[in-house]
Design a protein around this nucleic acid. Structure first.
Length: 429
RNA sequence: GUGGGAGUAGCUCAACUGGCAGAGCACCGGACUGUGGCUCCGGACGUUGUGGGUUCGAUUCCCAUCUCCCACCCCA
């Protein structure tokens, strides 16, 4: 048997209804905030990700699906291509390629699959779905303003609330600009040097490879040491500090709750200044439902003009997971089950189905070979509200038996005005 | 990539220290030839994830492999 490959999965009904609900709601919220959709290819030149996400990150160094494309001729080597592990790089590439700065501030969103070759786990798949947004443009369009950060965060709070995600928690931090971070990294290294030998093996490794990661440590014995380490907030330069303050002020003004988490460090190289994460309990270890931040230097590092930006990505798989904890699955139920009864009734049933569906009545169509018992059984199993019996007697008399499946009441409805009668009965409930 | 747990009917799970692979739900049919839900009766259900090994005999023990789950790493 051929099965879905490791880390990929089929989304089946009724779960797909929940996905559609999420995506419909998301699009509606984006519309109100005046965002527009962008769709970029699911594969790009490998270089794009290497240069934006960062060569040294786990994503680029070991998680990408990369292959050599065939060249056009024998001597032509072909290029290295990669399935997108995230979507910000692609959006910024499109921004540069299509000179989107001519449009001023771009407020873009996307919904689509991303690919990372990680070990699968609950809430973590090799093909996973992200709903993301990017606000990017020339500084003169206001792209650098803390107002953009706050607007995006407020949008997210609204979105989660409207989706019915009960208890989310917004964690906020500023990672400063590259200069700040270099100075901070240095200070952190120095502070760790004398104490690191008392810490867990993971921390000892992190202290060398990536000191910031020490803050992710969950070993209780290490916490007192970690608490005494210097924080990035003390190493922000004045513009960065002011920017961060302003973001917080606006959030308070609009009433979006947040907690400052000066241990929050985003992994991707391109992040600057505002970094954030929305977490949700009941998701296990993969409790980050979405994350994002500002990337003021990304466009330039990809050869574009100065184009500060900020964005986020929601893990749609995790969002759906969180919704499944609370919401009961809503299954689509037909209004009417049409039960053709006996040879030659399929055609008449199809005609009626067509008429009803044109009136927006949800119709499930049975088959003339079914006995009536089976038809009604099927109808009630599907949760249909009415069954419409289309048999010889009905055709002869010109009146069709309409049975209310919850009460058991049955009436004869004349062929003339039948669809109107059914539609009004359906709407009444 | 590392460590641990688990894979048995469509689903949820049984099967003692190795001895004929079972139950509930779901499915199909009948009781009831054009009237569902309730009830009763019957039916079909499986290379026990896969491949090796030990054994008279393996769902059970051993090895390998695949997949899922939990955690690490990291991220959404």
């Amino acid at each position: 048997m051929i099965r879905a490959v490791r880390g990929t999965r089929d989304l089946l009904p009724p779960e797909t209804a929940l996905w559609n609900y999420v995506e419909t709601m998301v699009r509606e919220v984006f519309r109100v905030y005046n965002f527009q959709e962008i769709r970029t290819p699911i594969f790009e030149e490998t270089q794009l990700f290497a240069r934006s996400v960062g060569e040294e990150t786990d994503i680029v160094s070991k998680e990408m699906y990369t292959w050599e494309d065939r060249g056009r001729t024998a001597s032509d080597k072909g290029q290295s291509l990669t399935l997108r592990p995230e979507n910000t790089a692609g959006v910024v590439r499109a921004y540069i390629e299509h000179k989107l700065w001519d449009r001023g501030l771009n407020k873009l969103y996307y919904i689509g699959p991303q690919f990372r070759r990680e070990r699968p786990q609950k809430g973590r798949y090799r093909q996973f779905y992200q709903i993301g947004a990017e606000v990017i443009g020339p500084p003169t369009a206001g792209s650098e303003s803390p107002a953009r950060d706050a607007e995006l965060l407020e949008l997210l709070a609204t979105l989660l609330d409207r989706l019915g995600i009960a208890d989310w928690c917004l964690q906020l931090n500023s990672v400063g600009c590259p200069n700040d971070r270099a100075a901070y990294n240095e200070a952190l290294r120095k502070a760790l040097e004398p104490v690191v030998s008392n810490m867990c093996v993971d921390c000892q490794r992190r202290a060398v490879t990536n000191p910031l990661r020490v803050f992710d440590c969950k070993v209780p014995e290490d916490q007192p040491i970690i608490d005494k380490l210097p924080r990035i907030s003390h190493y922000l330069d004045e513009p960065c500090r002011n920017h961060f303050d302003e973001v917080q002020q606006i959030l308070k003004a609009v009433g979006v709750p947040f907690t400052i988490n000066d241990r929050l460090v985003r992994g991707l190289d391109y992040y600057t200044r505002t970094a954030f994460e929305f977490t949700h309990g009941a998701l296990g270890a993969q409790n980050a439902i979405l994350g994002g931040g500002r990337y003021d230097g990304l466009s330039e590092s990809l050869g574009g003009p100065k184009a500060p930006g900020i964005g986020f990505a929601i893990g749609e798989d995790r969002l759906v997971l969180a919704l499944q904890q609370t919401a009961e699955s809503v299954q689509c139920k037909p209004d009417v089950y049409i039960a053709p009864l006996g040879a030659g009734m399929n055609a008449e049933a199809a005609k009626l189905a067509r008429e009803l569906r044109r009136q927006e009545v949800v119709v499930e169509l049975g088959d003339e070979t079914f006995r009536l018992k089976k038809s009604l059984e099927t109808a009630s199993k599907l949760g249909a509200r009415f069954a419409l019996i289309v048999g010889e007697n009905e055709v002869k008399s010109g009146a069709f038996a309409l049975k209310n499946l919850s009460t058991g009441d049955q009436v004869a409805v004349p062929r003339d005005g039948l669809t109107d009668e059914i539609r009004s009965r359906v709407q009444k409930l």
